[in-house]
Design a protein around this nucleic acid. Structure first.
Lengths: 320, 320
DNA sequence: TTGTATGCGTTATCAG
DNA sequence: CTGATAACGCATACAA
């Protein structure tokens, strides 16, 4: 019992395959009774059109490839949720790629997506040195990372976010403020958070210091800064770790130590409603990313590369 | 400048398309120098085989459809992460579907996946009354929900989990223990958590009461149970809400109120390391689900439906 | 060891 | 209003 195809429907309905195709796509004029017959036959056979064959012919798959580190992280999980939602509303499907932060996997995915003829790619896996992006002529939108000259970047205002967070801590009366960030990479807009922190501290004549993630950064942070007053973590997961470590050391938050994070994913807001953070406009990022991707897909010729920066918001919780 | 196809490579390499195909798939005998020529041509043209055309011919896409409520939820996000990982390791890609808990969307996705000729489906979106599953002859594995007689179900041991959680609270000396759960639905193994709670309470001659999620369940819970000693929440997000509400009311956890959740997603464990919970074997669930799906895909004839129940683990945190 | 012809399931073109 | 035919890009059976 194989899958019925268009020809089977045609035979049962006693018409030609062309006619069935016409009914299916509502193209050209068709007699009312033939249409009925065709629908009946489709129903009876439980027929579904084969999108693969269709894709091959029209040279378009209506699939968007989405590459991010992991759906396991609440921020990416939510971003991907919205990306998928927006795509779906436009008739596009999403092929999911978890790079797991590995450059080789990202490269492999990228090639796989090309072979699979996806109509476009949204990439937010932050690996370095993947020149495949540069060579590719495929519609691509990048989240938070410069991939190549011709690839538009969507991000939220990381510099402003860093400024808001730092200034907020200063306004709260803190002077000894430490920043935690991932390892510095070139071309990553997320590092603007660090620049903003350092600039803002300078502007206020305060000493600044950034810890980069390592096996021991947490202990180091606390051991080396007994006079610590506040921490600006570059994401909420890190902020949470700082808070928990403080708790374990008997340091009270916010009385003895103020902590602010970054991202504001829904799940984190729910689990840690007290956490102060910089809220990224996650749904908006998704909306705009897909929008720009669609522009490329629909007019791949004279398409003008424009980067978009979305506003962030300071959430004053109870940890500051 | 269109995409190069196999014939273009053949022309450049001065061989026939068949030969190129052979090189590509490493089939049959090929001369060493021809192979070299072909590879060179592929390189020069930046050629990628068209998987769509290939799929159409071999009648197989190596795509698995994955339907869940939302990647935004840490538990599903992590489960999907692992599902994608396992699939990738077997050469399969994942088409992501967020049902958002809506039955109409799930139905639409299901149809879309059929049209797209996916080789199989893993479904964990818990809607009711989708008979499409019953009619479908496609390889399907369900997570935590009975969809049809012929569809295997993978779940962790929900009854045992409910037992562990309840007994743990009793062991901690609690008598007035309330359970919170989603609305009761038929055929959902997750409701076994509730059954286990009620059975365990009965067995210990303790009064039991289950609150179902509603707009006011949290307030009701606290207002109607001034002598409340413990809460067993059917997932960690709910547990977190209970803890926060308690905090707002000046009720200390765990001194005045003990709370245990369910799921134990990585992100939640990181954000709320103190939370007692029942840990589901998320990675294992993913591994087994894909495994069973592959069995169906590879021998769709005499395939024996077997459900699998995986063990859970009690995590004793500081909230109990 | 390599090439030719055919078909996978669909749609567009062009005739009727 | 409807039908025959070719084509999308690839892989197989069969020849050479």
């Amino acid at each position: 019992m194989k899958k019925p195809k268009l020809a089977d429907v045609a035979k049962l309905a006693e018409v030609s395959p062309t006619t069935v195709s016409r009914v299916l796509n509502d193209r050209g004029y068709i007699g009312e009774k033939t249409r009925k017959k065709v629908y009946a036959a489709m129903e009876e056979l439980n027929y579904y059109p084969n999108e693969i064959a269709r894709s091959l012919f029209i040279n378009k798959t209506f699939i968007v490839g989405v590459i991010f580190p992991t759906t396991s992280n609440p921020f990416y999980g939510q971003l991907i949720y919205h990306l998928e939602n927006v795509c779906e509303s436009l008739g596009y499907k999403v092929l999911l790629c978890n790079s797991g932060g590995r450059e080789d996997k990202e490269r492999a995915y990228l090639e796989m997506l090309q072979r699979h003829q996806v109509d476009g790619i949204i990439a937010g896996a932050h690996n370095r040195g993947i020149d495949l992006y540069k060579k590719s002529r495929m519609p691509i939108v990048s989240f938070d990372r410069i991939l190549a000259d011709h690839i538009p970047v969507v991000s939220s205002d990381n510099y402003r976010g860093g400024e808001l967070a730092t200034q907020h801590l200063i306004d709260r009366g803190c002077k000894k403020i430490i920043h935690i960030n991932g390892p510095r990479e070139l071309e990553t807009p997320a590092n603007l958070r660090r620049d903003a922190y350092e600039d803002t501290m300078k502007k206020n004549n305060l000493p600044y210091r950034t810890y980069e993630i390592s096996d021991t950064y947490l202990e180091d942070l606390f051991n080396e800064n007994l006079d610590l007053e506040a921490v600006f973590a570059s994401d909420d997961m890190i902020a949470s770790k700082v808070i928990n470590e403080a708790k374990n050391r008997g340091i009270r938050v916010p009385e003895d130590l103020k902590v602010i994070g970054y991202d504001g994913a829904e799940a984190v807001r729910m689990l840690l409603p007290d956490l102060s953070t910089i809220q990224q406009p996650i749904e908006e990022i998704a909306r705009v990313s897909v929008e720009i991707l669609m522009e490329q897909i629909n007019q791949s010729d004279n398409f003008e590369v424009k980067n978009v920066t979305l506003p962030v918001e300071l959430i004053k919780g109870k940890t500051t």
